[in-house]
């Protein structure tokens, strides 16, 4: 449901940069979405289409890339993916937000919580 507000922020960013470059048209936009943002690409695309209607980005190709979650442990120095233990009873993957190596909760998420407009291709007039 938060796709609407994120799409607005993405559209503002894209149109601001395109305007600063004097773009007459935006051809493509590359966006990286962290898996811990729980943003649905389909819903984001829907909202971006609404935001970009009647703008230079109206026909832009929007490319999404998913970025996996990674954490850094302050206790043991581990850096990598969190673990997801299988609960065989209900077939649910129950993730652990603790360090998968030492079990400490003193962790920092170093990847996977962002929504980044990486780059875009524009068409500039003569």
């Amino acid at each position: 449901m938060h796709e609407g507000s994120i799409a607005k922020a993405i559209a503002d960013t894209v149109l601001h940069h395109a305007g600063a470059e004097g773009a007459e048209k935006i051809l493509s936009i590359e966006i990286e979405i962290g898996e811990l943002t729980f943003l649905s690409f389909d819903q984001l695309k829907f909202w971006l289409d609404m935001e970009f209607k009647d703008t230079p980005a109206g026909e832009a190709e929007i490319k999404f890339t998913s970025v996996e979650a990674r954490l850094q442990c302050d206790a043991c120095g581990f850096s990598g993916r969190p673990s997801a233990e299988m609960d065989t009873g209900s077939h649910l993957a129950l993730p652990s937000l603790a360090c998968p190596k030492c079990g400490s909760s003193r962790i920092e998420w170093i990847q996977g919580r962002d929504a980044v407009v990486r780059k875009m291709q524009i068409l500039k007039p003569d």
């Binding site: 980044v116 407009v117 990486r118 291709q121 524009i122 500039k124 007039p125």
Partner: peptide, 17 residues
Amino acid sequence: MPEKKEITVEENVLDAN
């Protein structure tokens, strides 16, 4: 002829919040 150009944006939209 209009010119194609690639722009590096590198902006995390969640950073504003």
